[in-house]
Design a protein around this nucleic acid. Sequence first.
DNA 1: GTCTCAATCTAAACGTTGTCAAGATGAACT
DNA 2: AGTTCATCTTGACAACGTTTAGATTGAGAC
Lengths: 212, 212
Amino acid sequence: MKLPCPITGPKPYHHGDLRRALLEAASRVLEREGPNALSLRAVAREAGVSPAAPYHHFKDKSELMLAISEEGFDQLYKFMLQSSDADAPPMERVAAIGVAYVEFAKAHPSIYRVMYDCSRDLESLPDKAHKAEDGAFSLLKKAMIDLGVVSSDQEVDLELACIAAWCAAHGLAEMVGFRQFDSLKAKMGGEKAFLAGVLSHLGMFGQARKRG
Amino acid sequence: MKLPCPITGPKPYHHGDLRRALLEAASRVLEREGPNALSLRAVAREAGVSPAAPYHHFKDKSELMLAISEEGFDQLYKFMLQSSDADAPPMERVAAIGVAYVEFAKAHPSIYRVMYDCSRDLESLPDKAHKAEDGAFSLLKKAMIDLGVVSSDQEVDLELACIAAWCAAHGLAEMVGFRQFDSLKAKMGGEKAFLAGVLSHLGMFGQARKRG
DNA sequence: GTCTCAATCTAAACGTTGTCAAGATGAACT
DNA sequence: AGTTCATCTTGACAACGTTTAGATTGAGAC
């Protein structure tokens, strides 16, 4: 006999929202043991259910990963939002978004990896897989419009500029993730200076920084 | 009784360079079934040996992947080299290198993925894992020096610019790999225009293109 | 030429994974 | 109360990475 949690509301069946519990268990496994240890069985174990239980909530492993990915992009969006002061000048806002992106990837490397690994695997359902990014992407788009590098009526160019910015941030996030650049960082006096230095060479981020 | 191959020369033991055969088998498996199907057993099967045979040539799976990655970076280097005419003006050379990078990733998506997946997994041995990139990276470096955006004596800034270019190319390669951007490409009249458009927003590539 | 050795390959096994089919459980509706 | 149906468990299967022990065989020493 399980009484429904008063916070999360009246929960349906046996477990009481196993789906949610699985996602949280997955998150714990990821932080504790890294992305290579993320197996369906490990997640089920962590949640205290049988290995087959997740199949009533996710079609297969890749759907679990997709759900984790969606949560990740949601967190990324929120982090970007809170990192870019809406009252700040557009140039600084764009730069802040870029830095926030890289910082997020560095702070949650396992989740970040899942976010893109499942993008790679799910060529089958591109719609669902990529809708997760939309929040973060449109945040960037707004800042780019305000920046005025591209005129907002030139839809195509705006889109291109945003894609370029996304590419730059993603590339940098991955590089920083699996290379150290230790000696270079030391020469520059810290990682922050290093990141800013690289960004200053990257298109719209560079323009954003030349102002300061 | 196996007579040594007259082309590859006198080969040592039983098989006659199984290591080479395994790498070629892996390449075939990758092209045929994609990166997710790349298992040690599948490679052994493809090469016609027992599942344990590869362990006499590679410590474990990640070392096989590392070897594939090294070959991939070597191919990438050669492709970059042949794509960038040494006599062309530096600006065009830098741009050509960037385009070649993305085209390589698109032409060999499975190999490209292995190249970076094993970078991610092998935090343990960064030296060996990243030495593979050195050829391609120094090619870019030379072009950047010739470009003169950064003065060659400012070592740090040159390094930053190259890292930035690498990030941009890698980010674009990945994005193009798992997103379609079909409608945008259609609006722009083809993929080539699309790629050039994105690159034009990306720092040094942008500068390279503004000339034309 | 024969012997020995060590590198190479195979056979068999272990623990793990993703996934499925069949059955048990129990909340909710009639 | 009884039926229904989503939920969870049990048990199984094939495939995987990896290890151990043993068979094979090329190459150098005598």
